[in-house]
Simulated scan of single mutants.
Amino acid sequence: MKITVVGLGVIGGSFVKALKGKGYEVYGVDKDVDTLNRAKEDGCIIEGFVDGEEIIPETDLTIICLYPSLVLDFIKNAHFKSGSVVSDAVGIKSYFIEQALEMIPEDVEYISVHPMAGREKKGYAYASADVFKNANFIIIQHETNDEQKIKKMQHLAGKLGFRSVKIMSPYEHDEIISYTSQLPHVMAVALMNSDTQKYDTGKYIGDSFRDLTRIANINEDLWTELFLNNKRYLLSSIRHFEKQLDIMKKAIYDDDDETLKECFRESTKRREHL
């Protein structure tokens, strides 16, 4: 099977690195020639292309790993092989998937996915097959999907090292992702930016601060798109978080130790269950 990964950044690069040695013919598309050369030197792709005009019509599975704003443009201008599968690894789904389905030919299957893994840094140099190991993988299913091809995508996810594969609608995906992925990024950025910088903060941090702020080292172009194109669900998640923050804030102000303890007991119980 021929697989072409479009966009060899940290996610697309991780795909080609994870596919290495799995028995597939893997090709890459990226506007950066140096990136393509590095991927070829690493043995992760057979050949690289600066556009998909030559290789996409011959590809059995196309995985698009571009920014959300670029996915539709690529689909609109590409010529996909009849009977092939086209996928994307974008972190939000509902705002564009209906448009994508209208562009995809009837004889081409569209299966959007979301590997729940990544790195704070951007670019092929920070890609790694290891980020997929034991990670979660989401498949977005729509009403016209072929069940057998969905199963093949599940099988591929397992070969790439993902531990859990879930199938859900684009709307369910965007709602839960607003909480599990986007809200933590909002919190990390706000925490970093709330530093008064009165002290040399780095001299006084421990593991908790390091863990909480790891994702504050953020790709501003990508995450701005993700936040704004999922604002309905993200704002809802922020409101739920603010409600819990206000409960703790009031308990601290009122010296209400019982409320604080109950908050701690509930979070401990939920974390252990998770």
Rank of each mutant, 00 (worst) to 15 (best):
V71R: 05
L70T: 12
P105C: 10
I104D: 13
A117K: 03
A78G: 06
H114F: 10
I140L: 14
D88H: 09
V50E: 15
T62K: 02
M153H: 11
K93A: 13
E98T: 14
S87H: 02
V108N: 07
I75N: 09
N77E: 11
L101E: 14
L66V: 01
I140T: 13
H79G: 13
G52I: 03
K133L: 12
T59P: 08
Q154S: 08
V108R: 10
D88S: 08
K152C: 13
I55N: 06
E109F: 06
F137T: 03
E120F: 05
A117G: 02
N145M: 11
S87P: 02
P105Q: 07
D107T: 02
E54S: 10
L156W: 03
V165C: 07
A78V: 04
A100P: 14
G52V: 00
S164C: 07
V90K: 13
E102F: 06
I150C: 08
L72S: 08
K121H: 07
A129F: 00
V113H: 07
V86M: 05
F132A: 08
I150T: 11
A157C: 03
D130T: 02
I150K: 08
E147P: 11
K159V: 11
V131P: 03
I139A: 13
Y124M: 02
A89K: 00
D73M: 01
S128Y: 02
I92R: 02
I75Q: 05
Q99V: 07
A89Q: 00
V71Q: 01
C65F: 00
Q99T: 14
P115W: 01
Q148C: 10
K133V: 11
F80V: 10
Y67A: 04
G158W: 07
A100G: 14
N134R: 01
Y95I: 12
T144K: 15
K166G: 08
R119I: 12
I111K: 08
F80S: 06
V131H: 00
K76P: 09
V71P: 04
V90L: 03
K152Q: 13
A125T: 11
D60Y: 06
G161A: 05
M103T: 09
D146C: 06
D107L: 06
R163N: 15
K76V: 08
I63N: 00
D107G: 13
G91K: 04
S94E: 15
G123L: 00
S94I: 06
L101G: 08
S69C: 14
L61A: 05
V86H: 06
G118V: 01
R119P: 07
E106F: 12
G52R: 07
I140P: 14
I140R: 09
V108P: 13
K166H: 13
Y95G: 07
E98A: 10
P105F: 02
C65I: 05
L160I: 01
R163M: 12
I111W: 08
A78R: 09
K133A: 08
S69A: 12
V50K: 15
L156S: 10
I56C: 12
V50A: 15
F80L: 06
G52H: 05
I97P: 06
I56S: 04
S84Q: 01
V131C: 04
I63T: 03
V108H: 04
Q99K: 14
G161M: 00
